[in-house]
Computed example of a mutant assay.
Amino acid sequence: MSASNIGEVCNQGLKNAHYLSIFDNSIPHNHKSWKNAWKLKKDSDYTVKRIRSIIPDAVDKDDGKSIWDYVANKKMNENISKEVWLVMGYTFNRKKFLEEISSKNPSAVSKHAALTLEGTMANIRSLGVKFKVFCS
């Protein structure tokens, strides 16, 4: 487990969480690339669709601005559930972390990781947004 890697993933989540705030009207700067597939690695042929949600037919799925307008309208609805997902992958092993942090003498790295995750969760939840971490 690397506290700095966890911090990097948490910072990415925080950096983008403001878009879910009802007080934020900014448009994501990368909305034009949403129609393109996302590559796992630059030299890889493995790609994933960026937009993995049910978008109504009335929304132009090839136009990031059209998708954002749809999302921006939805985020204002108090009945809509908003979530920020942190995908840690193999950066973070839940079982090892829980064993370490609950031990009699947790390491400085595990304490740092715990505080980083807790701070990220508090900031994201303060926006009325759910927080989920996916890890190995």
Rank of each mutant, 00 (worst) to 15 (best):
G13Y: 11
L14G: 04
N16E: 14
A17P: 06
Y19L: 06
L20Q: 03
S21R: 01
I22Y: 11
H29S: 15
N30P: 12
H31R: 07
W34T: 12
W34E: 13
N36I: 08
W38Q: 06
K39V: 00
D45W: 03
Y46L: 04
R50E: 12
I51L: 05
R52D: 02
I55D: 14
P56T: 11
D57Y: 14
D57T: 15
A58H: 10
W68G: 06
N73R: 07
N73T: 01
K75L: 10
K75G: 07
N77M: 05
N79C: 00
S81A: 03
S81K: 07
K82I: 05
W85S: 11
V87G: 04
M88Q: 08
F92N: 04
R94A: 09
L98M: 07
L98P: 05
E100S: 12
I101R: 06
S103Q: 00
K104Y: 12
K104I: 13
N105W: 03
S107T: 14
S110F: 15
H112W: 08
H112S: 10
H112F: 07
A113K: 02
T116E: 10
L117D: 09
L117M: 09
G119Y: 01
M121I: 06
M121V: 00
A122D: 13
R125L: 07
S126Q: 01
L127G: 05
F131Q: 08
K132L: 07
C135D: 14
